[in-house]
Design a protein around this nucleic acid. Sequence first.
DNA 1: ATAGGGTTAG
Length: 312
Amino acid sequence: MTSGNVMPKTKTCNELLSLFSKLNRTERAWVLYADMFRLKIKSSVKEFLGFMEILGIKPTVVTYSTIIHGFCLRGRVGGAHMIFSAMKGRAVQPDSYTAFGYSDEMVKKGIMPTVSSYNLLIHELFMEARASEADCMVREMEEKGMVPDAITYNILINGYCRSGNAKKAFILCDEVLRKGIEPTKETYTSLIYVLSKRKGMNEADDLLEKILRKGVLADLVMLNALIDGHCANGNMERAFSLLREMDKMKVHPDEVTYNTLMQGRCRAGKVEEARELLDEMKRRGIKPDYISYNTLISGHNKRGDMNDAFKV
DNA sequence: ATAGGGTTAG
């Protein structure tokens, strides 16, 4: 639990604790020993499964999903894919990872991928920019009679938005609505983000209005993305009117909001006005970060007034 | 029980 660079989440800890509480004293000693031991060796997952086996605790699909997640977080993508293949009963290369049950033995033990396991892998494929394979995964799920859930769709929509494929993202959003799944505010943020990046500011504004009408509360990240779109397209008036709307909606702007606005003003050659925003954010108790200063310094630099750049 | 989620510079 303590090894590695990934902090366990509360729920994970609860899981381990509940596991722990089911053990007798000797077994607890073994687990503690295992944990201590894991700090000194690399193959912690193998060890963990090994001790589980010794203790007669059978891993479930959740155990393996948790392991897949851990591998993804640590960038051990190959391992993640292999465990998933093993869950599907596909023969995997008999190497060190298969030693403790990552093999087609899993199917015999009744370990089959769930929607959650698929979601893990679909997300991983998007992180690796392997969108078409992610699509195949969804089809594979559906062929097996599994139903993609809201999380599956959020992964897909966000993935396509990040790669700039707005069309595909909107098609998926329609599909979600058709299926009666309620998109979340994060889904809409992804869509506003992609519209803003693709200069579709009218559509982005319309979408925000539609969302608000639906009763979904606008939030900071969503509005920041929209403000950035307007700044990038030189519509500073609209950007600032959104800032005022934020205040009205009691959504408190943060350093990202102000950095975005400062950048917009710098881009328009209004470095002094951008500098005023630095004071304004300080007055409002928002702490400028390194991006705030970089933005102003490079704004001055572009104009060649190095003295002012140093004053920032 | 495990899984997803967003914004700013260069």
